[in-house]
Write a protein that binds this DNA or RNA. Structure first.
Lengths: 237, 237
DNA sequence: GATGATTTGTACGTATGTATA
DNA sequence: ATATACATACGTACAAATCAT
């Protein structure tokens, strides 16, 4: 029974999961009292979970005005994807240099198997594999801090790419892009792996940003819950 | 009067500043009650500040065991510096491509002026300029999210490079490395700027890691306050 | 290994600031 | 514009876990 830790920490993980999975849409207001009653706890651990989430950038908090799930502007989303691309490209370059023989064979194996998923057109399944694929490359960088940084950025970007594989033909082109990355890594070509990964993430950017813009809640590019332009408290300034 | 915000937020900023400046040494235990009495507040805002700091990775928190200023292992420090190098290198490449004419002239100007500081041997002054120099390049990437990411990583690394300029001759060699970066940026050579910046940060790594290792508190490479090897709760896993 | 002291985690009440009529 | 309603921020009390003996 590894049911340990504190209420605040468990709630934080729970909310983070819901935000990343898209269950809690960006812009959604999080109510202390409602969450406290819903999860059967007092408001204290809820507030502590909020602070931790704000520190991670998953929510934005303004004094006396509550907490909303982070809803970046279009400009900022593009910036986030650019950072994602650069970090993943770095991971790919280091992976190409540092992976061991068995690790390379494992990556190739996983990549080959994913072709089966592409053929069935299973978008859900491919999304899951895609997560694994990128995780493998994070780890292959042999730098756990880089790995964590990559995952932290991905967490903040994921809410906005939930549906990227709904775009027609995206599955097979994603696989083709993966192939470029994998081949470069297999032959130990760091520069090529970096370039291929950067190009791959760039494609996701276009698909995702456009998709989100079409479905953006509210007319203006600002969260509808914050009518004025008072800047939010940025805990990672 | 911009004396606003909450007690928890102000305390968070205060502690973050003290951690980054080295006033609060890595491994130092933070006591809820002591801080509360010292700052004239109750434990509640202190605990909320702790959660936010943990979310940023500046402190580590373990259930029922309190909070200590983050004290990475040597391995992890090297990883952090590698990430710092990669992110700063990315900033430099983008800066070389994206800076406007006036911005380039401003960078050149600041760089030239720093030569005066080098000549006087004013380590304090050069450290301050160095911060500005890197900040300029973060901003010049024209990506505010990248800028914030770079600063977030730097915040976590800074406690371990306080004294880098104490090493003899480090001032002028740092200036020479800056020169490589500046010249590459001025001629718009992204690849060269990236390489020069990566090399520059790499040098800081060696100086800093060695310095910290010599002054590391406690014999083993683990914080002396955590005698067992129970893993800390990583809020940015 | 048990017990008391200390510290952290949670509940709840009240005050203060924000939004709404 | 003022007052009222409401959510958040903070303080205090208590419970639970850790540590020191």
């Amino acid at each position: 029974m590894s049911e340990k830790s504190t209420l605040a920490d468990r709630l934080r993980e729970n909310l983070a999961e819901q935000i990343v999975s898209g269950e809690l849409r960006p812009g959604t207001r999080l109510d202390e009292i409602e969450l406290a009653t819903r999860f059967g706890m007092s408001r204290t651990p809820v507030r502590e979970a909020f602070k931790a989430l704000a520190g991670m950038g998953l929510v934005e908090q303004r004094p006396h005005r509550g907490v909303v799930v982070a809803l970046p502007t279009r400009r900022r989303m593009e910036e986030m994807f650019e950072v994602m691309a650069e970090i993943e490209a770095t991971c790919a370059r280091l992976a190409a240099i540092r992976m061991t023989g068995p690790e390379r064979r494992f990556l190739e194996q996983a990549h080959l198997q994913s072709l089966g998923i592409v053929r069935t057109g299973d978008m859900q399944g491919y999304a899951s594999f895609n997560n694994d694929f990128h995780d493998i490359i994070y780890r292959a960088s042999k730098n756990s801090f880089l790995e964590e940084t990559a995952r932290a950025v991905r967490r903040r970007v994921l809410p906005f790419r939930v549906s990227q594989f709904r775009v027609v033909g995206r599955l097979s082109s994603s696989h083709a892009e993966h192939d470029q990355v994998v081949q470069a890594i297999l032959r130990g070509d760091g520069a090529a792996a970096e370039a291929a990964m950067r190009a791959h993430v760039a494609k996701v950017t276009v698909a995702s940003v456009d998709f989100v813009e079409e479905h953006r809640p509210g007319q203006p590019l600002m969260p509808q819950h914050w009518p004025d332009d008072t800047p939010a408290i940025r805990q990672n300034p």
